[in-house]
Nucleic acid binder design. Structure first.
Lengths: 337, 337
DNA sequence: CTGAAAGCGCTTACAG
DNA sequence: CTGAAAGCGCTTACAG
C-alpha cells in the first residue's frame, strides 16, 4: 500500500501539497495538481482513513440506531430505511454503523459502543427511541436526526412521514368505493405516526359528513402497545362485536392489517366484499397476502437517503434552527379494498 | 476527552505503561496496574480508535456483504444474520459495516468502499455472492468467511446450514402423518442450500421406500432462478397438472411456500387436508400466514454469532486449513401440515 | 518492571 | 503557490 509520502516523492513535491490536492484545498498550480493527480492514479494511492481521522478528529462513521423490536420483528421497515442510508453514504464518505437499543435503555450502561467511544460524527434515530438517549445526544452535542418519530412539544432535526395525508387519502378512497362504516385498529399513540394516521382517518370521515363522537368511539380500537398482528386480531373481533354493519377497517400499519385479514378469513368473511381492509407502510409481505393488501406506500429507501442528506448537512454546517422534512406518501389500491 | 497522556501524567507513569495496561500486555507491577486502572476510571478515559488503528494497522471494522436482492426483498433472513453478528460484535471490538453488491458485480468498478480503502480486517459473505468477489478477496489476502453458500469443488472458511437433515426431517414427518405423494418446489440449484434440501427430500422418501426416477421427475418443479412467491405459484400449478393425487408439497424455502399456499387458497384447496405445505427457513411471515406455515427453523441470529466468531478467529489466528461449521436446524410443525 | 523515542499516515497553520 | 514542521493519540521494540 502506497502512502502520501510515496506519492510526494514520486511526484517530486512535498506531502503537504499532495494533501492539499487530495482535499481540494488551498491553491495549487495547475501543473503541480496534474502531476500529483496522475501520480495518485499510477500508484493507486488511497488515503488511510484512520490516519486522516486521527488528524481531523472526524470518525467517518455514522450510527444508525433502531429499537431492537423494530429491527428484529416483522419490521422490514427500518432495515429498508437503513439500506437507503447505506446507498446514499456509498457515494459519499461515511460508513453507517447499525445497532439496536432496548426499550428500557439506560445511558449509563447500555450506551452503543460507537457513542461511548465517539466513533461517529452523527446519529440517525429511526422510529420510537428512548427519550433519555435523545437527551444524552443533546448533552453531548452530538448531531442527530430523528426519523419517523417525535416528542410532543419538542422540535428536532427530523424526517417525518406525511401520515395525515396518507390516511386521509386511504379513507377518502374507501368512502368513494361505497364503504360507510369504517373502523380503525391501531397501536400506541405514543408513536406520533399512529396518532397522525388516526387523525387523518377521523378528518377524512368528517370531510364526508360521516362520523361523530359516538361513531369514533364505537369504530375505533386502540391498544396501548407496540403494533402486532395480535392487535389486529383482537381489534377486528372487538369492532365486529360492537358493530354489525362494519364494512371496512383502516389499520395503523400493515402488520396490524395482516392480523385483521387472517382473523376475517378464519371467520369466513369475504375481503373486500364484506369488509375491506387497508393498511399503511407497504411492507413487503403486504403484496403476498391474499388478497393482496391495499395500503399507503411509504418510500422507505427514500427516507433513508433523505436522512443521510440531512445528518451530513448538520454535521458539516450546524444549523441554528432544527429542520423538519416531510416525506409524502401514496395510496396503493390492491385487492383487499 | 482525556487522552493516554492525561492518564499517564495523573497516574505518574509513562504512556507506554498505560498502554500496556490497557492492552493487557507485558508485565506491569500490580500496584502500578491498580493505580493506572483507577486513574482510567476517574478520568473516564477511552482510547481513541483511529489512533489505535493507525498504530496497529487494524481497522476495527468488519464488512458484511450481502446480495442486494437478498437484503431488499422478502428476505429478512440475511438481516437477521447481520443482527446476530452485530450482537456478537457489540461485546467485542468491531463495527460491522453492511453493504450490498449487485448480481453483475465487477471488481474494477463496484468494489465496496470498505474493501477499496481496506477499512475492514475481514469480511463475511452472506448467501450467494459473485465468484469474482471471492477471488478478489483471495488475491488480496483478505480474511473472509462464507455463510450459507459454497462453490462446488472449493473449500473455504464457512458457516453452513444442515440443509440435508432439515429437509430429511420435514419429509419424514410428512410421511409419518400419512402423506405419500409429496412434491418439491424450488429455485436455482446454483445455491447449494437448495440443492441440499432437494437431496434431503429425495433421500427421505427413498428411506421410506417411496420414490423412483419417474416419481421425482413428476413431483419436482425446479426453476433456475432466484426463489420467489411466483415460483411457488407456478410450481404448484405445474405439479397439480401432472399429479392428481398430490397430497403435500415441500418447498425450498418459506418465500416459495407462501406463493404455493396463496395459489392453493385461490383454488379453494384445503391446507393441510387436501395438500400439506412445508417450507424452510422460518422467516417471520411464516407464522402470520394462514394457516401458519410448517417449516424448518434456521437459527439466523445464531448463524450471525457463529460467523462473527469464526471471522475473528481467522483474523487473529490465520488458519492453514479452511474450517466449515455446520449449524443444525429443527422442524417446526404448525398448521399447514 | 518501566520509560524514552520512533513511528503509524495523515492535516494544517505558518513561513517564505 | 509550496515546503518544513508540529501534531493528532496511540503502540511497540528497545534499553535499562
Amino acid at each position: 500500500m502506497s502512502t502520501i509520502k510515496d506519492v510526494a516523492k514520486k511526484a517530486g513535491v512535498s506531502i503537504s501539497t499532495v494533501s492539499l490536492v487530495i482535499n481540494g484545498k488551498g491553491y495549487v498550480a495547475p501543473e503541480t495538481r496534474e502531476k500529483i493527480m496522475s501520480t495518485i492514479q499510477e500508484l493507486n494511492y488511497k488515503p488511510l482513513h484512520s490516519a486522516r481521522k486521527l488528524a481531523t478528529k472526524m470518525t467517518g462513521n455514522i450510527g444508525y440506531i433502531v429499537w431492537d423490536v423494530h429491527f428484529s420483528e416483522v419490521e422490514i421497515f427500518y432495515s429498508q430505511i437503513f439500506l437507503g442510508m447505506e446507498y446514499a453514504a456509498r457515494d459519499s464518505e461515511h460508513y453507517i454503523l447499525l445497532t439496536t437499543v432496548k426499550e428500557d435503555f439506560n445511558p449509563k450502561t447500555d450506551l452503543p459502543r460507537f457513542l461511548k467511544y465517539r466513533d461517529v460524527d452523527g446519529v440517525v434515530l429511526a422510529g420510537r427511541v428512548p427519550h433519555n438517549l435523545i437527551k444524552y445526544l443533546e448533552d453531548q452535542n452530538m448531531p442527530f436526526v430523528i426519523v419517523d418519530y417525535g416528542i410532543p412539544g419538542k422540535v428536532y432535526n427530523s424526517i417525518v412521514i406525511d401520515n395525515f395525508n396518507g390516511a386521509f387519502q386511504a379513507i377518502d378512497q374507501l368512502i368513494k368505493s361505497g364503504k360507510k362504516k369504517i373502523g380503525f385498529v391501531g397501536g400506541s399513540f405514543y408513536h406520533p405516526s399512529i396518532k397522525e394516521r388516526y387523525r387523518g382517518y377521523k378528518e377524512a370521515l368528517e370531510a364526508h359528513g360521516i362520523g361523530n363522537i359516538e361513531y369514533f368511539n364505537n369504530y375505533s380500537f386502540i391498544k396501548e402497545e407496540e403494533t402486532s398482528p395480535e392487535i389486529g386480531q383482537n381489534g377486528i373481533n372487538q369492532l365486529l362485536k360492537n358493530n354489525e354493519n362494519l364494512d371496512a377497517v383502516f389499520c395503523c400499519n400493515d402488520t396490524t392489517a395482516i392480523g385483521v385479514m387472517n382473523e376475517l378469513k378464519a371467520q369466513n368473511k369475504s375481503i373486500p366484499k364484506d369488509i375491506a381492509v387497508v393498511g399503511f407502510d407497504d411492507i413487503t409481505s403486504s403484496s403476498f397476502c391474499s388478497p393482496a393488501l391495499s395500503t399507503v406506500r411509504v418510500p422507505k429507501l427514500d427516507i433513508g437517503k433523505q436522512a443521510y442528506k440531512l445528518i451530513t448537512e448538520i454535521i458539516y454546517h450546524p444549523k441554528e434552527t432544527p429542520q423538519t422534512r416531510t416525506i409524502s406518501v401514496e395510496y396503493i389500491k390492491r385487492k383487499s379494498s
